[in-house]
Design a protein around this nucleic acid. Sequence first.
DNA 1: TAGATTGTTAATCGATTAACAATC
DNA 2: TAGATTGTTAATCGATTAACAATC
Lengths: 226, 226
Amino acid sequence: MLPDRRLRTTEHSVSERIPEGVIERLPLYLNVLIQMRHDGVSTVSSARLGELTLVNPAQIRRDLTHFGSFGKRGVGYDVVTLVDRIQRILGADHTHRLALVGAGNLGSAIAGYNGLRQHGFLVTAVFDSDPRKIGTRIGDMAVRPIDDLERVVRDQDIRIGVVAVPPEAAQEVTDRLAAAGIRIVLNYTPVIVRVPPGVTLHNTDPVHELLHTLYYLSRREGVARV
Amino acid sequence: MLPDRRLRTTEHSVSERIPEGVIERLPLYLNVLIQMRHDGVSTVSSARLGELTLVNPAQIRRDLTHFGSFGKRGVGYDVVTLVDRIQRILGADHTHRLALVGAGNLGSAIAGYNGLRQHGFLVTAVFDSDPRKIGTRIGDMAVRPIDDLERVVRDQDIRIGVVAVPPEAAQEVTDRLAAAGIRIVLNYTPVIVRVPPGVTLHNTDPVHELLHTLYYLSRREGVARV
DNA sequence: TAGATTGTTAATCGATTAACAATC
DNA sequence: TAGATTGTTAATCGATTAACAATC
């Protein structure tokens, strides 16, 4: 698939290199497993997990063996244990503080998103450059002036930053986040921002996704091939 | 990478099968090319395009040959022409109407996003189930009751639907969109929704992306391997 | 012509999947 | 024991990349 522009880091994993695809699928398994745990399901086979995630069962088993062997032959995987292991693998077994830059609609949507808290992500600081927004509330957080960014990120030891600002501010905000010690940047603008070595970048742009999906629409409707 | 859960369709492309990865990169090229066109750049080499998109130049050339040969040896690609060709390939050379379901913060963010219009995507209908939201304005659209969904989608011949509702409503909304004739569903909830054959689904979940990215954070900080 | 850069082939690399022995 | 399902190997498949002849 992508080479991968959306996710890029300069350093390498220790010991064995785990394929990108594996890491991309783990959250998918986790999602379904947490639902199953909630429903009181105690055991799951790779076949069943495959049905629910639309991933080939052989691939699920193969993916998991990168990290150990968590199942019982003839039985399957213990749901509670597997949730626990995948959370540990991903680093989702403890909470992470997030700095959110941009207190517009998108920022508000992100801050108000329950799924974050459920997975241990806490938005603990919100910044905006618009003086009229400073001091207003987003969820239970007061919006802070962008000038406080460096100090707050350092004080709270925040390692994840979310960029939800207008495109023209994206690179500057990213630079400031990185300089303040942020290790992961989630970029919600269409701008291709640069990050220094050691900072992981993840891009999400609705237009990019729409354009991508659009291709298949045209094909199906028999629009002439270029 | 993913097999691909995020994008799934039941039908096939006509003639030659184009790899997913190629289609995923085209919007990336387009993004940069439109910026260059705006800046008055007339010609670009695969090497330069590679720098700007972080994609290997050989891959860019290979990707493009799936659709024809658009460059001049010794010279490069004409920016205006290439923008045009890629837009035609993706089907982004004409406008597309979008139905947005969910008029909360996320819905407002999507409706207010300029990039959509720039690429020919027009949100022409917004729905919500909350009576207090009906009739309020999002951009220049009045929010409609969800009960009007089928009628409006049919009347306006809308083919793309965006699901920005609470998770518990995601599957029902998706079903209704599909039944009304929607061909592409953009799902902004963490729910794994099912779509009927012939409908293309694209999922975007911030938590999924955070969890994915998180893995690399733990690695770099030397957290014990599971 | 000399230099540049494409289009294309072939080699490499890596990921997916089928198959099955191990074992619960 | 018989049946089920994992863990793992090996085969397949496909995508990326290097290299270079074609050609502007």
